[in-house]
Design a protein around this nucleic acid. Structure first.
Length: 425
DNA sequence: GAGAGGTAG
DNA sequence: GATTCTACCTCTC
């Protein structure tokens, strides 16, 4: 898939959420800092200093909260408004360096870089400097002939300061590459998770070097095409394509509750809020959906009876109307048992189409209320998310189940009232 | 086509 | 006492 004379670069922000917090609060520099998942549930990003304390990814916050003060550990709730905005700024910059930008996640992207290998490395270094200067975030760049190797090079650059944040795999001496591959466990290769790593180990394939030496056809027979592609990529044959659709296949809005919900009444409120969350996400992406799935679930960690009621219902037409979505989500309610402690619920909208196609294909869901969605969206934007909503979604105060975000930093870049103030003298 | 399983960030 | 969320792909039935 890569054209002759071009390579693939993977640009990835170092500890993205932590770096975003530090970009606006330099006092966090050099200190142990973690950012928590939604609902302040568990650790999802750590500064190097926090890693040094032995805090692992996914650690539940309650398990380390008691020691935080003694460690001098700083903690923040995740501030997706801030991270999303910084991400967009980074991606815009990256787009200036390539004709082919594939945004892979909020903090990383693949770029096709043309030209001779050394020129590619120079471009990588420039990207790093420009993102640092313009957005204030540190990135590392890995460059290679395939995505899997670019990932690997990126990881190598991150761990070794002598690379200065940029590693071009094809410019590294062969001996060094071999020794890296021999030291890298298969589970650390992009695309190989715990399950496959275990099965590979059982066959005596322990390192990336071993896997690169494996026969792709044999791997395909015993495992899958996915794993075969990884082998080919390690061997230098590019075969992992970008995601086909640039738009989403589905929109999923789900949250864990701050406290378990065990009444149909509270579940009704939550579903209503989540359906409207899904509706505004659809509106932002200018999409409409035709099928809605609603679900609730009890804790997979508790010893009690587990239950995860689900409904999947067709919508009356392609729509992003919060009223329609809310009504559809409510069909889950009869399956909700009073007294059962649900800890999570969500709404998924699938079978998506661009909203623009609507007029040609089907009449709008309902002519009289087709403007409800944009109206709610607009009012919510201007006066705050809790200013307006349907039914119980217009709650000013959070009820017992709403998300915990006790340690939130300001929305430095997305709310006028929270802009950082710079004092000059 | 739906659901399960796997993987990732 | 307390344990994220979103999205994709492939395989199987």
């Amino acid at each position: 898939m890569s054209e002759a004379g071009s390579s693939i670069a993977l640009v990835d922000v170092n500890n993205f959420y932590v770096s975003s917090e530090r970009a606006f609060d330099p006092s966090l520099e050099g200190r142990p800092l973690v950012v928590l998942s939604n609902n302040d549930g568990c650790v999802i990003t750590r500064s190097p200093e926090a890693k040094a304390l032995g805090i692992t990814m996914g650690t539940p916050w309650f398990r380390i909260a008691g020691q935080a003060q003694q460690w001098g550990l700083e903690v923040r709730s995740s501030n997706y408004e801030l991270y999303g905005d910084l991400s967009a700024r980074v991606m815009e910059l990256l787009g200036r360096y390539t004709g082919n930008l594939e945004i892979y996640s909020i903090d990383e992207a693949f770029l096709t870089l043309p030209g001779p290998l050394r020129a590619q490395r120079v471009t990588g270094a420039e990207i790093r400097a420009v993102v640092r200067r313009n957005v204030g975030l540190p990135v590392c760049v890995g460059i290679a002939s395939t995505k899997t190797l670019a990932k690997l090079a990126n990881r190598w650059a991150k761990g070794n300061p002598e690379f200065d944040g940029v590693c071009h795999w094809d410019l590294v001496p062969e001996d060094n590459r071999r020794s890296l591959l021999q030291r890298l466990a298969v589970s650390d290769i992009w695309g190989i998770g715990a399950k496959n790593a275990q099965s590979l180990n059982a066959l005596g394939i322990d390192s990336a070097w071993d896997l690169a030496a494996a026969d792709p056809v044999a791997i395909r027979k015993r495992f899958s095409v996915v794993l075969m592609r990884t082998v080919l990529e390690l061997q230098g044959t590019s075969c992992i394509t970008g995601r086909e659709s640039t738009g989403n296949e589905q929109v999923l809005y789900s949250r864990s509750f701050a406290a378990p919900v065990s009444t149909r009444h509270a579940m009704h409120q939550a579903l209503s809020v989540y359906a409207q969350g899904a509706a505004s996400r659809l509106a932002r992406k200018d999409l409409q959906g035709r099928v809605l799935t609603a679900f609730a679930a009890t804790s997979p960690f508790s010893s009690g009876r587990k239950s995860s009621p689900t409904v999947c219902v067709p919508l009356p037409a392609y729509t992003a109307d919060p009223l329609e979505l809310t009504r559809a989500a409510d069909t889950l309610l009869p399956l909700i048992e009073e007294g059962v402690p649900y800890i999570r619920a969500g709404v998924i909208v699938t079978d998506l189409r661009p909203a623009g196609a609507q007029a040609m294909l089907l009449p709008p869901a309902s002519a009289t209320r087709k403007d409800t969605g944009p109206l709610l969206h607009d009012v919510g934007r201007r006066f705050g998310r809790s200013a307006i909503g349907l039914g119980h979604a217009g709650l000013k105060a959070g009820s017992e189940w709403t998300m915990k975000r006790d340690m939130l930093s300001p929305h430095y870049t997305t709310k006028w009232s929270e802009l950082p103030v710079v004092k000059a003298r």
